[in-house]
């Protein structure tokens, strides 16, 4: 139990500390693919440090909600990162919140961010909040469907149990997970404000979603949000690994498997980050009103995944 708690804390802290590194790696890959010279991999840390040192500038009419939201978003993402098995499958906190609760945590963070965006009352803030909720209302059920497919297979909504079924029991090829994987990729691009749904580097009012919401934030508040964004990317990558490539995560109570698990995680994250930037580089940003179609497709693929489970795997 104590090792479990230690592992839990270590995993969460590692996720918080390493998340900007993954972000830096993705940015680097992206720059290479676009033929630019890349920023150093530690660039996100420097940005965070710079932001934390600055004075916060807040609009006159900002309510306490506006100042509270970044903390809330960060806390939610830290919590989410702690729920996903990354190196060890031994998470004492996971019985308190299963995969459905994880979706709830993401939703909680999103609602707070959207409300904070509407708080100042600029046209950009409300625009961003509206678009974010538009993306979310399809992405969230789609993510749930992905989890449901996995939990129909493993008879559980607990992430450690899912990982155990997929990685540590007899190897079985699950066709339904192929559907879930495609749906998951589509959802995670949307949820992490990536091409083809959103573009993290744009500030063009016709296209931006996430950036429009956080335009009013500065200094430490912005730093917390940026960090939370990096954490979200990390958590989604960890989720993708846990659901579709779980081999290597140390099973419960096997401490000597840990070094290998860390290596496996680093390798998978590096490949995953590169794959993400590659997919981003070859796809085009869709029009805003194609985004619901894109996510609707993801949602229906998730539903199909569940159906395929009934067709082929029962």
């Amino acid at each position: 139990m104590t090792t479990g708690i230690l592992l839990q804390i270590a995993q969460t802290l590692a996720a918080i500390l390493l998340a900007p590194l993954l972000m830096g790696w993705v940015n680097q890959c992206r720059a290479w693919l676009q033929g630019r010279s890349a920023p150093p991999i530690t660039q996100p840390y420097r940005t965070l440090r710079k932001l934390f040192h600055k004075d916060a500038v807040i609009a006159h009419n900002a309510s306490p909600l506006f100042r509270f939201a970044p903390y809330m978003v960060f806390a939610c993402m830290a919590l989410a990162a702690g729920l996903v098995p990354t190196i060890a499958n031994d998470l004492p906190f996971s019985p308190a919140a299963d995969a459905i609760a994880l979706v709830g945590v993401f939703a909680l963070a999103r609602v707070f961010l959207a409300l904070a965006a509407m708080d100042i009352g600029t046209s950009f803030g409300t625009l961003g909040a509206r678009r974010e909720m538009l993306v979310a209302f399809l992405a969230e059920p789609a993510l749930l469907m992905v989890f449901f497919t996995a939990s129909l297979i493993s008879q559980s909504t607990e992430l450690p149990t899912i990982v155990e079924t997929l990685a540590h029991k007899e190897f079985v090829l699950y066709p339904s997970m192929a559907f879930a994987a495609v749906a998951f990729w589509m959802v995670s691009t949307a949820e992490n404000a990536r091409i083809p749904v959103d573009n993290p580097t744009t500030h063009l009012e016709l296209t931006m979603i996430h950036e429009a919401m956080i335009l009013e934030y500065s200094a430490r508040h912005l730093a917390l949000i940026e960090w939370a964004v990096a954490l979200k990317l990390f958590t989604y990558s960890a989720l993708g690994i846990a659901l579709f490539l779980p081999w290597g995560i140390a099973p419960q109570g096997e401490l000597n498997a840990l070094p290998l698990a860390v290596l496996a995680l680093v390798a998978k994250m590096a490949v995953g980050g590169a794959a993400l930037s590659l997919l981003e580089a070859i796809s085009a940003k869709v029009r805003l009103f194609r985004a619901p179609e894109f996510l609707g497709t993801a949602f229906l693929l998730g539903v199909l995944g569940m159906l395929i489970h009934f067709l082929l795997e029962v």
Binding site: E170, V172, L173, Y174, P175, S176, A178, F179, V182, T297, L300, L301, L304, I308, L312, E313, V314
Partner: peptide, 28 residues
């Protein structure tokens, strides 16, 4: 559960699912 099926059958099932996935991709 598929545990009773042999690996090549699992692969056939998987390919069947791929066939369906591609059919849906064609629709979209």
């Amino acid at each position: 559960m598929t545990l009773s099926l042999t690996y090549h059958l699992q692969v056939v099932n998987f390919l069947a699912a791929m066939l369906l996935l591609i059919a849906f991709a064609m629709l979209s």
